[in-house]
Design a protein around this nucleic acid. Sequence first.
DNA 1: CCGTATCCCTGACGATACTG
DNA 2: CAGTATCGTCAGGGATACGG
Lengths: 130, 130
Amino acid sequence: MADATAHDRSAPLDPDMFHPLCPSSAMPFRVGDKWSGMVIRCLQGGPRRFGELRVPLKAVTPKVPSETLRAMERDGLVTRTAYDENPPRVEYALTPLGRTLIPLLDAARAWSETHLPALLAARRAAGQPA
Amino acid sequence: MADATAHDRSAPLDPDMFHPLCPSSAMPFRVGDKWSGMVIRCLQGGPRRFGELRVPLKAVTPKVPSETLRAMERDGLVTRTAYDENPPRVEYALTPLGRTLIPLLDAARAWSETHLPALLAARRAAGQPA
DNA sequence: CCGTATCCCTGACGATACTG
DNA sequence: CAGTATCGTCAGGGATACGG
């Protein structure tokens, strides 16, 4: 994995960042909004444009990202910067407060990678004995 | 705070364990069920009876605890032990897998205690400027 | 490109009532 | 005491359509 502390603007977000069974999907944080955790992971490496966030979030429509980002902005977790250009460009970035959540998300991801298989195995054993 | 690693069966659960603004309420984990985090915190100190869990969970009806515990049992996070007595007694306890989540919940709680005031302040400033 | 507004459907959760 | 069953309500989130 690349160094996420440096900001490589050319690095595209992995479209498959959040599989249905992705550890980060299985254990999201809720800080006023359940998508916040995923947004933080997307912004971890630096500012991202609105359109960039839609892909890894599997947001076919812009509604969910829009609502999530507005809520996170109200909570002081992200900043929104609009550039007066053509075509329009808007960038979202994490605030210092938002960055404090990164270690927690890392811990959650580490847990999932270690223990989620056992959990899913137990669920399968109990749910579908067949 | 008492030592939660030892199992003091006489220690009652604090009815106000989960205030509406309790850090643990503001940032619950989801492992197949959003109440799981609170249940884990209730069982952290050792086995608890069904009725004991209802109070701190603010569950006026037994429906939510029942569903949550069944889901967590399927996922291998808790065990259910029924004693053939009169009156009936049933105890729930964390499995080793369930215990692996405790550090994450502690981290979440620590984050909330440190940063939640700032988040709520930002929300208030943006939401109700009045 | 960057959103917002609306409709609609589903799943979470509370209340009520009932059983072993 | 320890649940289950059923109903009603409501917010979350997807689809569609439209505006800056």
